[in-house]
Amino acid sequence: MNFKNLTNKTLITDNDLDWEALGLGVKRKIMAYDDSLMLVKVAFEKDAIGTIHNHPHLQMSYVAKGSFEVTMGNDKKVLNEGDVFFAPTMVFHGVVCLEAGLLVDIFNPHREDFLK
């Protein structure tokens, strides 16, 4: 996919974008971004894991579907559809999908590593 084409679009149709398989029951779709902001959909099969990690980006994630056990630093909580988590810069975080689900992630600035 040519991600450069996403930077100048202001009206995005979901069906025009492809999923990127990340393996082990996880796939993502980069919906839109510019230098300062990125929105990504991440779909999880039941029991799939978003491995504990950290990064210099601010991240907010909206649980659009399903149920996730979310680890944020030393805290752990089950979040369900409609809930949100916020990952501050460099805080370790990750998820375990308890029932098939979808997260909508917003990053500031955009994740350059996702575009490679």
Score class of each variant (00 low, 15 high):
87 A>F: 02
32 A>N: 10
93 H>R: 11
45 E>T: 11
73 G>P: 05
72 M>Y: 08
28 R>S: 05
93 H>T: 11
70 V>R: 02
96 V>R: 08
25 G>K: 02
96 V>Q: 04
45 E>F: 06
9 K>G: 04
18 D>Y: 06
72 M>E: 12
22 L>C: 03
53 H>C: 06
93 H>Q: 09
86 F>S: 06
23 G>Q: 11
90 M>A: 10
77 K>L: 04
87 A>P: 01
88 P>H: 05
7 T>N: 15
17 L>A: 07
99 E>R: 03
31 M>P: 03
39 L>A: 13
40 V>D: 14
69 E>M: 13
97 C>H: 00
32 A>D: 04
42 V>H: 00
37 L>I: 14
29 K>C: 13
33 Y>N: 08
56 P>H: 03
25 G>I: 00
72 M>D: 02
34 D>K: 11
102 L>W: 09
56 P>Q: 01
9 K>W: 09
39 L>D: 06
98 L>S: 03
32 A>T: 09
17 L>H: 12
16 D>T: 07
26 V>C: 07
64 A>V: 12
32 A>R: 04
55 H>M: 07
28 R>N: 06
96 V>A: 00
38 M>F: 12
60 M>K: 14
58 L>V: 11
92 F>Y: 13
33 Y>R: 09
33 Y>H: 12
9 K>L: 13
23 G>C: 04
60 M>W: 15
74 N>G: 06
65 K>H: 05
29 K>L: 09
92 F>E: 15
43 A>P: 05
42 V>F: 06
37 L>E: 10
38 M>Q: 12
90 M>D: 07
13 T>K: 14
77 K>M: 08
25 G>D: 03
64 A>S: 12
84 V>D: 10
76 K>Q: 08
59 Q>L: 11
51 T>V: 12
102 L>V: 11
81 E>I: 01
47 D>Y: 06
15 N>V: 15
88 P>L: 08
95 V>D: 05
30 I>D: 02
56 P>I: 10
9 K>S: 09
73 G>E: 14
86 F>I: 09
92 F>Q: 15
6 L>A: 14
30 I>G: 02
61 S>P: 01
24 L>K: 12
47 D>L: 12
68 F>H: 11
65 K>T: 00
96 V>H: 08
70 V>L: 12
30 I>S: 06
